[in-house]
Amino acid sequence: MMALLTVNNLCTTFSTPEGVVRAVDGVSFSLERGEALGVVGESGSGKSVTVMSLMRLIATPPGRIESGEAIFEGRDLLKLPEANLRSIRGDEIAMIFQDPLTSLNPFLTVKRQLTEVLETHRRMSPKKALTESIHMLELVGIPSPAKRINDYPHEFSGGMRQRVMIAMALLCRPKLLIADEPTTALDVTIQAQILELIADLRHEFGTTVILITHNLGIVAEVCDHVAVMYAGKIAEYGKMGEIFVRPRHPYTQGLLRSLPRLDEKRAARLESIVGQPPDLTLLPTGCAFHPRCEVKSEHCLREFPSAVRFGDHHYAHCWHAEDRS
């Protein structure tokens, strides 16, 4: 079966007063239908910019998609005319964001915002759109949806607002759902509800999901595949089980070791990764992780590592991935 989305060598830059910054630098991955890919990384790793570039939602200037292709069902998203892209956005590909307040219009009722999507993308009659919208709100677990649909976004609590956002994203039954830190602004008990909802909806509609997060626990809960990003590049990619059990990149290993865990005995000290996240304007040479890496060699300073494969779906960009495994 053909992949739903194939991204090849995506590069996105931003021009800043300090110079041109390569926020995404040669990212490639492919996504099968029904798969859930977790993209993990710290601030500045390029995880959000990657998906924003796919949707061509990068403000230009200062941003610029330099190169690459993103084949979505045979069409290159990066080269499509803006008009075609607009009909894909919100219809075949939908996004949910960290803060639903910024993506819902505060001056319009939820009803207006939901029905509008169906009326423009699906050319539904207002009446049918309303029925469909109420149904979708019910599906995402909003109590008494027929009544609440007339409310404004601010009248919903944080968790409920995120549900509204998800309902809006799912209205057109998108083939691909991109969730950018969907639960970061929420409390753990509400986060559990939303993650459960996303899992349920995946089963129900078979939606393909890209989940961007900095929380490895969330990835472990929702995803099948994981891409770990560092300084605009994918450091390691693999099946979820593989990544968590046998991480190959020192960064992934460090991240997993540094997390205090509820299910393990309390350690006296955490094994932390030294140093600071990289400043994109002053990236280290070679492998950008080398100043923080425990196993670096002189080679790492000179050249960015090529991918070392471990089985079909697992690779790590590290010169020392092999000898450490």
Binding site: G159, T189, A192, A220, G241
Partner: peptide, 24 residues
């Protein structure tokens, strides 16, 4: 609250029993 915390280990994650609180 404890059961809602995601644990970065898929093996543990599968075995856990989850209490999802309803409501806000």
């Amino acid at each position: 609250l404890l059961s809602a915390v995601p644990i970065p280990d898929p093996a543990v994650q599968k075995k856990r029993e989850r209490i999802v609180l309803r409501g806000d």
